[in-house]
Design a protein around this nucleic acid. Structure first.
Lengths: 230, 230
DNA sequence: AAAGTCTGTCACATGTTTGTAACACTGGGG
DNA sequence: CCCCAGTGTTACAAACATGTGACAGACTTT
């Protein structure tokens, strides 16, 4: 899961600040804009995953910006959450008609904000319909999160599962420990490269004698998942 | 497929109008009522196939009407979709407890409304979907709202019932806590993810040793309902 | 009003997973 | 045959995820 980028559009610096703090604590990356022009530039430039848009903006209003964004093909599928101090329901309806995906009335708790944001992002990324991957009697099924070897279930830990999933979707190619750390652990963690060895070992053990040869050591280079003999 | 008749109950003429337009474009026949009395008369008289019921009504509240309708035998099986402007999600739960079949928070898009309406009708019409689900001696019967384990009734709370129903209709697949909150609690509720754990625990306890293994923990991922061993 | 139910949250218990270090082994070059 | 860099293997404490019991507040029923 990569870190999501949130664009906060509000003319009040204090509010932006408050939101940004809350979001950063929840591991989101924040961009800030004070008006529609600035927002638009950032959208094009940085491609945020979701936009928090204040109803009231100097110049072009928030709702106007939302409408424009939803009209353009390149930005239409970026989810938008409208923020407003207004209580009137009309605004709410108009906001959503314009294509906003959710709506938060100020004042709101940081917790609620984060929860809503999560919900919207979740809905925007529909649950994957990943097909099971099968190799040589070994099956990994993402939807049930299960690994099967000839009809019997294998018990693999979380990291080993991710490792196996990566390998099965990237067969026949060598990956260095460093690359594996990037791809399986996620870019910005600091762990020893030898840690990969240990997890490879654990994965092989979990796979059992019947399949552990699929994970091949390439001396001086890294590891490879291959159906071909080493 | 005959044309379905929809009764719209809302005190705001503008909203009724908006809904009616959307529904008529989707080929539904619309009836409108502004309050509970009017609604009741139309229900007896015209026998709508489904009711869209606003939460806020002058006089008898929407929820009160729903409760009454679900209590009476002649009207109990008319599906009800609750509409509300309230943000508090407690309402959602109470609305569903009363027997509403779905729930939509204003504001909503006409698209969403039609989609939900269709879904509810689909669920309501074929007797098949109302059929009891049986797994390994454990039976959930939506029509009687009961859970049975080998001929003895189990006492499960409302949330646990919904959780179980969701799981039994979505077996063999992992759901994250987040997804479960979406599916079982409802889209924009905001509760801690750990709350899911607690309800899982309660459900397991209610199921008893004989069946609690059906709810499996998938470490680092979520939960799964499965007849296969973990 | 009282007793009971249900829910969400917390604090603590329990159990797993993870990263690391330490040591054992291997294979290929000299 | 010996080196030794590279890899396999094991053990372990810390970090983390989940299980579990208790509790307060909101509602419902008596």
């Amino acid at each position: 899961m990569s870190v999501k980028t949130v664009l906060i559009v509000d003319d009040e610096p204090a509010i932006r600040e408050m939101i940004a703090v809350a979001l950063e604590m929840a591991d989101y990356e924040c961009l800030e804009a004070a008006d529609a022009r600035e927002a638009h530039a950032l959208i094009i430039d940085r491609q945020p995953d979701i936009i928090l848009l204040d109803w009231m903006l100097p110049g072009t209003s928030g709702i106007e910006l939302a409408r424009r964004l939803k009209k353009e093909e390149t930005t239409a599928n970026i989810p938008i959450i409208m923020l407003t101090a207004k209580v009137e329901e009309d605004n709410k309806i108009r906001g959503l008609e314009v294509g906003a995906d959710d709506y938060i009335t100020k004042p709101f708790s940081p917790r609620e904000l984060v929860a809503r944001l999560k919900a919207v992002l979740r809905r925007a990324t529909p649950p994957g319909i990943d097909a099971p991957i099968e190799v040589d009697g070994l099956t990994l099924d993402p939807s049930s999160h299960r690994v099967t070897a000839n009809d019997s279930f294998l018990s693999v830990g979380p990291t080993e599962y991710r490792l196996l999933q990566f390998f099965m979707t990237h067969q026949e190619r060598v990956y260095t420990r460093s690359q594996l750390l990037d791809q399986v652990w996620g870019g910005n963690v600091y762990v020893e490269e030898r840690t990969v060895d240990v997890h490879i070992r654990r994965l092989r053990k979990a796979l059992g004698a019947r399949h552990d040869h699929l994970i091949q050591t390439v001396r001086g280079a890294g590891y490879r998942f291959s159906t071909q003999p080493a």
